[in-house]
Nucleic acid binder design. Structure first.
Lengths: 342, 342
DNA sequence: CTGTTAGCGCCTTCAC
DNA sequence: GTGAAGGCGCTAACAG
């Protein structure tokens, strides 16, 4: 059995509450320097370890944050998690990581579970599209911050990136290179991030009078396989796009597979801009032009924001933080040349 | 305030313990079907959520597992974490993820912290080299499983891969292609994984009478930058290697950067075999020959093993599970040709 | 079948 | 300065 406050108290012939006061280092209560020293010595001698569980129970404060994400093995989320963990640790907290696999049921179970366990706050990259769920969640007075995916119409604390503008800029860039037929390889269509990127894409398409056709938009999901299939369908159209904007961290791998299989060469046969946060993209045969995220910054902002909300629960102001994506022009885009095989 | 057992009891005019028994669905105790129904209805009506914290405190069982890893943003660990999370969730547990950044102090703090929080077990990819620490840890009777990195001389539960054989096989493969001068791009030298790979490398070198020189071994660390520097140092030797075996998931990115910078072409100027678990390697300009890990299997085995140990604490038998790495021959290796520039 | 009692380890209020 | 008492919410042992 582990040693408790009581054990120390018994040995020191003082009351447990005295020991508690000393070990908490609570300076508001005066304790004679002599007993303080004595107690601390005994605590060290017995290698006292506070039972944090009992403490959390008593204080209703677990020093634990829940993180809910769709896929920890995706470099986007693992990068954010890495940053979040660091911040959380520095603040003296622990991190419970919950992986939903983009499964709505699992997400909801996890939220309930975390609340029942008495965590102090949550950071959520949600896979749902249900504003109501989160407006209800707000009423439970457990601080949370949405990350990456959020709801434009709902006043919740969140950290997100400039999805619309970045997509617009990508299309504009391609237009300037002479492309008029630009494909959009979408991820899960109903997510806020993807919807916003699609908006940016469409706005640019229309503003610049580029080919505006439904068949240029393909894909609904984030797996390598879905990326492969969608890319293949786009590139085997009667009138295929000369440039591609891919969305979703894994889709680009599938896209590259399809491109390779069709024996197309980047950037001569096809220009490619990818939303991706993989470290390898600069080192490919044809280094990809990418839109990536400041993952460390996103994690940091989310934690800072959450910590604010935890420390001042009475402050109900909603903070929404937009971070800028990073547009890295590399070799996978070039001036539009008509395909030779037609 | 959240609704408690007491609230339900009061409303139903029964004793709280009765409610507890019913909600636990404990079939060993007989409860009249009538009250059971009544209580359940009231619980639902009040949307009762058990306070898991109180429960954990009472039962000394948190349904939580701690995972200690060096770097969650490394695809090796994020892949394993993904698998672990899934298994843990299915078993009704939560996962606390602790990221050490290969920092020994942080690792030890985390272990203590987790124990004080009363987790039910740990899975650890340690960054330390101290057998004694773990032989002490064993005495604390908290089940744990080492993963990837372990101690050959210490009887602890662990899941690891065939580091030595896989390195041997890689060198043998290169020898069969005519290479006699093979570089070893090492990661952190003191880790068990790296030491074993080095052993396999050296055994093969000696058995096949290949060039056995200290200068062919370089690097000590796992960052991209360290991979870059070490590769550059190897490839700019007076008498550089014609083939390279790289160890460590990120080093290969640095290696590719160096190779590119030196304008060497894979596999003509250099053969490359990499220990890596990145998904992208097959889709590179020159698809890499790799040694990768069955990440899902490793996570699964670790969790299964841990769960066994948790459910049968009296069973002190030590289980050590070796998984097989996957050797994927792709285009980055070819028959040895002398470098033209000499 | 259900109620009573006790206590997990800690912190906090109130005494003295 | 320190002690005493009470209780967070739950479950387990023991009654009846």
């Amino acid at each position: 059995m582990a040693v408790t406050l009581r054990d120390i108290a018994r040995k020191a012939r003082v009351h447990p509450s005295t020991v508690s006061r000393i070990l908490q280092n609570n300076r508001t209560v005066k304790i004679s320097e002599e007993t303080r020293k004595r107690i601390l010595a005994i605590a060290r001698e017995l290698d006292y370890q506070p039972n944090e569980l009992a403490r959390a129970f008593r204080l209703r404060k677990t020093q634990t944050i829940g993180l809910i994400i769709p896929d920890i093995s995706n470099s986007f989320f693992s990068g954010i998690s890495h940053s979040i963990e660091k911040q959380i640790y520095d603040a003296g907290y622990n991190l419970v990581v919950c992986n939903t696999n983009e499964n709505l049921e699992k997400e909801r179970k996890y939220v309930r579970n975390l609340m029942n366990r008495g965590i102090d706050g949550m950071i959520i990259a949600t896979c749902q599209n249900d504003e109501k769920y989160f407006s209800d969640l707000k009423k439970k007075s457990l601080p949370f911050v949405l990350i990456d995916r959020f709801f434009a119409n709902l006043a919740t604390n969140c950290v997100f990136s400039d999805n619309k503008n970045s997509a617009f800029a990508a299309v504009e860039k391609l237009k300037n290179l002479g492309h008029r037929r630009i494909g959009f390889l979408r991820g899960r269509a109903q997510l806020s991030t993807i919807r916003l990127r699609l908006q940016g894409y469409l706005e640019a398409i229309r503003q610049f009078n580029l080919d505006d056709e439904n068949e240029l938009i393909a894909g609904d999901g984030f797996t390598v396989e879905e990326g492969y299939a969608a890319t293949k369908s786009l590139l085997t159209l009667q009138n295929p796009p000369t440039a591609l904007l891919t969305s979703g961290n894994r889709l680009v791998i599938g896209a590259m597979q399809a491109i390779k299989e069709l024996q197309l060469k980047l950037p001569d046969d096809l220009s490619l801009i990818a939303y991706t946060d993989n470290l390898f993209t600069p080192y490919l045969a044809c280094p990809l032009t990418t839109i990536s995220h400041p993952l460390a910054e996103m994690g940091e902002s989310a934690v800072n924001l959450l910590m604010q909300k935890i420390s001042r629960p009475e402050d109900k102001t909603v903070v929404q933080i937009e971070v800028k994506t990073i547009f890295s022009v590399r070799e996978s885009i070039s001036a539009c040349r008509p395909r030779m095989d037609e």
